Amino acid sequence: MRAGLPRARAGMVVGLLGGSFDPPHQGHVHITRESLRRFGLDRVWWLVSPGNPLKAAGPQPLVRRMAACAAIMDHPRVTITDIEARLGTRHTAATLARLQRMYPGVRFVWLMGADNLAQFHRWHRWRWIMQNVPVGVLARPGSGMAARRSPAAARFENARLPASAARRLGRTRPPAWCMIDVPLVALSSSAIRARGDWGPQGRG
């Protein structure tokens, strides 16, 4: 692979956790560790995005967010990467298509919270994502109702794996998705920004 890009061998199952990480926090760390264990992943890559197309305001500079991610997420099987900025991709579908071409034989799993599944039908080429990459959904216990009733969940209801089969997700031919209940840390990036702990003055 080219310098600066993550490494993965054919046959590996790699979870992809995308986001602006503006800022990263212990909630991100917690769901990453749970994903490694519950979905049986070999690796997780944090895809620190240049910006979120669904958000009007831009995030903090990428270099700052990358440094903050590296400081908070210390795990031998987790890689922090700015690969989307390097590839010049703006949407998740385009990123996934490029990764599949660049890493033949690697099995990718897209990771996201139940809140994202609830509005997944707004994503660019969301059907393509579901049809080409297994999706692991993490929900707080008892809070996934909106996700379960979402257009995406309804459209791909027949492709849903039970939580008991979560470890098979990465080796199941898509479309395939699985929702697991995970006691999530009560933190959010927006709440941290609202407190003023992360801002242009370099606090955080």
Results as ranks from 00 to 15, higher is better:
R122Y: 05
F120Q: 06
L184I: 10
A147I: 05
I129N: 06
S164F: 10
G142Y: 02
P174H: 05
P174I: 00
R140K: 10
Q131E: 15
T172R: 00
P175Y: 03
P162E: 12
I180F: 09
Y103E: 07
A153I: 10
R90W: 15
R107F: 11
F156M: 09
G142P: 02
T95K: 08
N132E: 12
N116E: 02
W123D: 01
A159R: 05
W126L: 02
A166N: 07
N132S: 12
Q131D: 13
A154W: 15
A159E: 04
V137Q: 07
Q119V: 12
A139S: 15
L138A: 09
S150D: 11
W126G: 03
W128H: 08
L184D: 00
C178P: 03
W110E: 06
G136H: 10
R149S: 14
L99T: 08
A146I: 03
V109F: 06
L161H: 05
P162L: 13
R173H: 09
G136C: 06
A114F: 03
R140F: 07
W177D: 01
L99S: 09
A147D: 00
I129D: 06
W177F: 03
L96T: 03
P151I: 08
T89P: 03
P175W: 01
L117S: 03
V109L: 09
R122E: 14
G142L: 04
I180R: 07
A85R: 14
V106S: 09
L169I: 04
G170A: 09
L87A: 04
R155L: 14
A97S: 13
F108T: 09
R98D: 11
N158Y: 12
V137H: 08
R122W: 05
D115C: 03
L87N: 06
P183I: 11
A163C: 09
L184Q: 07
P104S: 01
Q131H: 06
Q119L: 12
P183D: 10
N132G: 02
W123T: 00
I129E: 08
V109P: 04
R168I: 09
V133D: 04
F120L: 07
W128P: 02
G105W: 04
G136A: 13
N158A: 15
N116A: 09
S164L: 14
R101W: 13
F156G: 03
S164I: 10
G113T: 00
A159Q: 05
P134G: 09
V135N: 07
P175T: 02
S150W: 07
A139Q: 01
M102W: 11
R125W: 10
F108Q: 11
A85V: 06
D181M: 08
G113A: 03
E157H: 14
A94F: 08
A176V: 03
R168D: 14
A176H: 02
R122L: 14
P183F: 10
A154Q: 15
Q100V: 10
T172L: 01
A85D: 11
A114Q: 01
Q100K: 13
I180E: 11
W177R: 04
Q100C: 12
A118I: 00
A166V: 04
A176E: 00
R122I: 00
T89E: 11
T89F: 01
W128F: 06
